[in-house]
Design a protein around this nucleic acid. Structure first.
Length: 448
RNA sequence: GGCCCUAUCGUCUAAUGGUUAGGACAGUUCCCUCUCACGGAACAAAUCGGGGUUCGAAUCCCCGUAGGGUCACCA
């Protein structure tokens, strides 16, 4: 048994300089899963030491995203609030002789004439990456890198390092783009006498252009998916499987996982080494799968909340068309669109189809269609009080088959729905009832 | 360019030296059907190249090649 006595502590440290996108969030997913799987702590740290680029709206976006995903963090830090501690460490490193104040000739506007550089011992640093194995990088060509603009303005490497140490981070799970930063951070950690955490460098998430996902190249904010009606559980599921996969079984292996199931199966060792492309089509499929698994009550709850967030209300007839709606929507946004764009307007609005539409798919002339409509009107009049899709079908299907289904069912369906595309006429009739069904057939016949 | 990482269907992936290289998404076709959607079935589609090691390599080693990352007083 790998019984580590220390509690596992992971962290997700985004900088509030842009909206969170899939790449960032997948890092959060892995950090969250790993920490929670082992009963450890998940720390959210806002890396806002760059005062120029950090914006509070982006910090809010980070918090909103975590909330939507249901990722509760055990600790929350804002790096800028650790400024005194960072200054203290900077001074200490200078005292120790591990850093020094360097006189510079500014090359760009805004650069300081005096910065703090780390005194690079110029050695090869080797660390073990859980995903990739041992990685050795010679730090000589890194030179004495800058760790502070001044005593009170720490830079990235100093900030992460000190904070990881102070917060007791045991596992640093981050993007592959940080591999080259790792030796520098290990050097600082050593100078501090701090323990070296376990590293796991994730493969990157690419866009369809096979380049690292970035806002600049059109990566969508994760909150946009929320606003389009994706489910957080689908997003987590998809992201978890982008670069990770449970041990393979032969046939029909599972792909749809709930968070508890992911927690059960997740291991850092099975994370992929190579980068993956973010595929919205597959995300959508996961969303549909998770949507299907919701009970009618839950679904109703979600769509109601979703629409309310957009200032909309679900129509009162929704319970009657729920099954129809659910099989026709892959996202809550699509369901919402169907509800407000008129696809189900036949429930309450008398349709007004044009004569052309009435015979468009009937493969018959107007006179024939009119005759059929009049005939099924008579057939339906004799259907008893039990007016359902089944009894309606029983009443007219034989006739329709006899004279050609298209010439009967198409016009009937259009008469009831007013639309080129809609559910089948039996379902429609059952939904709106005998009275409306008959009157709409009469109205349609009169148009021909 | 230096350094580092990586390489299985279009995409996400399975396989831990022995399989007709499996699954999923997307695609195509068919069935169900008056339309749309749902559902069902089928088809197509891959081990980057070259050398080794081995009875046997997608798997291990080497060399290429390709892609990516990184080389800030951003994080």
């Amino acid at each position: 048994m790998n019984s580590t006595h220390d509690t596992i502590v992971t962290r997700f440290p985004p900088s509030p300089t842009g909206l969170l996108q899939a790449g960032n969030v997948r890092t959060a997913v892995f950090n969250y899963l790993f920490a929670k799987k082992h009963g450890g702590k998940f720390v959210l740290r806002i890396e806002d030491t760059d005062r120029e680029r950090s914006k509070s709206e982006y910090e809010q976006n980070i918090i909103d995203t975590m909330k939507w995903l249901g990722f509760e963090y055990d600790e929350f830090y804002r790096q800028s609030e650790h400024a005194p501690r960072h200054s203290e460490v900077l001074s200490k490193l200078i005292e120790q002789g591990d850093a020094y104040v360097s006189q510079e000739t500014p090359k760009e506007a805004g650069q300081r004439a005096e910065v703090i550089r780390f005194k690079n011992p110029n050695t090869a640093v080797t660390f073990t990456d859980v995903i990739r194995g041992d990685i050795t990088i010679d730090t000589t060509d890194l030179g004495d890198f800058v760790i502070g603009r001044s005593l009170t303005e720490p830079l990235y490497h100093l900030g992460v390092t000190v904070d990881d140490f102070d917060e007791g981070i045991t596992h640093v799970i981050r993007g592959e783009d940080h591999i080259s930063n790792t030796p520098r951070q290990i050097l600082i950690l050593r100078a501090l006498g701090a323990p070296i955490p376990t590293y796991a460098h994730l493969p990157l998430v690419f866009g369809t252009d096979k380049q690292k996902l970035s806002k600049r190249r059109g990566a969508k904010a994760i909150t946009e998916y929320r606003d389009e009606g994706y489910l957080p559980e689908a997003m987590i599921n998809y992201l978890a499987l982008l670069g990770w996969h449970p041990e393979g079984k032969d046939e029909g292996e599972q792909e749809v996982f709930t968070v508890p199931e992911l927690l059960e199966q997740f291991t850092l060792e099975r994370i992929q080494k190579s980068s993956g492309v973010f595929d919205e089509a597959k995300l959508k499929w996961f969303n549909y799968e998770h949507l299907k698994r919701l009970s009618d009550e839950e679904f109703t709850d979600r769509i109601t909340t979703f629409m309310a967030a957009h200032g909309q209300e679900v129509p009162e007839y929704m319970p009657q068309i729920l099954t129809l709606l659910r099989e026709r929507s892959q996202t809550l946004g699509e369901a919402r669109d169907a509800l407000i764009m008129g696809e189900f307007a036949f429930m309450v609005v008398t349709p007004n189809p044009g004569p052309d539409l009435l015979i468009q798919g009937a493969k018959a002339d107007a006179a024939t269609v009119k005759r059929h409509l009049e005939h099924i009107h008579r057939l339906l009049e004799s259907v008893g009080p039990e007016f359902t899709d089944a009894t309606v079908k029983a009443a007219i299907f034989d006739y329709a088959t006899e004279v050609g289904r298209a010439s009967v069912l198409w016009p009937l369906r259009v008469a009831l729905s007013g639309r080129e595309k809609s559910p089948d006429p039996f379902t429609l009739a059952g939904l709106i009832g005998k009275e409306h069904t008959l009157s709409r057939i009469v109205a349609a016949a009169e148009l021909l």
